[in-house]
Design a protein around this nucleic acid. Structure first.
Lengths: 210, 210
DNA sequence: ATAAGTTTGTGCCCTTTGTTACTGTTGTTT
DNA sequence: AAACAACAGTAACAAAGGGCACAAACTTAT
């Protein structure tokens, strides 16, 4: 565990902090497809990602979903932190996209370390910045782009995150993430297939060139 | 100036910090409609709002705009901070919505105070949280709501921020903020007028009940 | 007062996206 | 093998929103 932690976070964290994380944090290995955080849930610990990918999504009152962004190695969920610090319920849902290794750190510790370690402060602030920028990208995407482009971006990102150009999703699942309907996704995917950008199969999509 | 600073920020800032802000910060009074920060611009100081309101907006490559949120008394622009800390260009444009009083604090100071004052850390941290939550609201709005509702929300917020139920905007200006066309805004406003929610005039809108 | 510019109202049509309904195909269960 | 469920393809239609054109009302400059 220590090597992984060092490798991932060593540019931020000083040795005493690493020791504390190893002592206080709980290592978890989560298979793909697990909901590790849900809307309305109170949060007592925050995750430091060692490997894998987590997708973070938003849901409205009617249960409509929208993918916000992915979290990857070395990142943490600032929205979750915000909830922790404000002692409010989670505003988002987080689901493992691939098998994921992470360390869960209790909230109290994270507040303590804020005062104690410069490295921790820097890490937390940088995380906030990254999340803000990702959210701005998300806003751009839904505000300024049409579905064709959003779908292409989505597929591209998915290949990147899963490190696999065979995307194992049904059209319905993609529709949920983009907050549209299955029929629309099928239509647009067919269009992309005709443009030789991908090949459609049952239960997976072979991305050729986007 | 000191009373205003105290009044607005005293729940966060300790006295020595207030003294430093008074010494290092530059008070500015900006009339309505001024661009105080623009996309692509490098930022050397961050604003602490004493009074008034600033609208923060995003623009894509083609020059299409979208209102993200308003900043009000006691707030600061975290997206700007993020740029400062990362030494990158501004991702957003900020325009005074009303006459605004603010204190500009140089970036170096803000980094220094991060280590030195707990109150400053808490303030910066809370600001990030508030911005993240506002951005999530913005995402919800454009992802899940239709224009009718977004327009109503927009007008409601504008009344709140300007403390005036006569909204002094042309339909074109509203269209820019919502990232739609003038014709569409005129159409929807007319619908709202027929529903007795407002009364339309040239160059202003009298909001009755939204 | 006239001319020019700005703002708003409205009709018509187009594009994008969403909905419904039905089909065929594949995989699973019994 | 028969029945069923999940997934994908497609046509037809509906709705939301955007674009164009033009008219009317109002404002400002000359």
């Amino acid at each position: 565990m220590e090597e992984e932690l060092l490798g991932t976070f060593s540019n931020y964290f000083e040795q005493p902090l690493i020791d504390e994380i190893l002592a206080e944090g709980k290592l978890m290995e989560v298979p793909a497809g697990e909901t590790i955080m849900d809307i309305g849930q109170y949060i007592r610990s925050i995750p430091l990602m060692l490997s894998g990918a987590i997708k973070v999504l938003r849901e409205d009152e009617e249960g409509d979903e929208l993918l916000l962004y992915y979290l990857e190695q070395g990142e943490t969920c600032s929205v979750t932190m915000a909830c922790c610090m404000g002692h409010t319920k989670s505003e988002i849902r987080a689901i493992t996209e691939t098998e994921t290794k992470l360390i869960m750190v209790p909230v109290q510790k994270m507040e303590e370390w804020m005062a104690k370690y410069k490295g921790w402060r820097n890490y937390v602030f940088d995380s906030y910045q990254n999340r803000l920028n990702e959210l701005l990208q998300t806003v751009d995407s839904i505000a300024f782009k049409n579905l064709d482009q959003r779908l292409m971006d989505y597929l591209k990102k998915k290949v990147e995150v899963t490190k696999d150009n065979r995307i194992k999703s049904t059209h319905q699942e993609i529709a949920y993430d983009l907050h549209t309907s299955r029929v629309v996704v099928s239509r647009l995917l067919k269009k992309l297939e005709k443009m030789k950008k991908l090949v459609l199969h049952r239960n997976y999509i072979h991305v050729v060139d986007l």
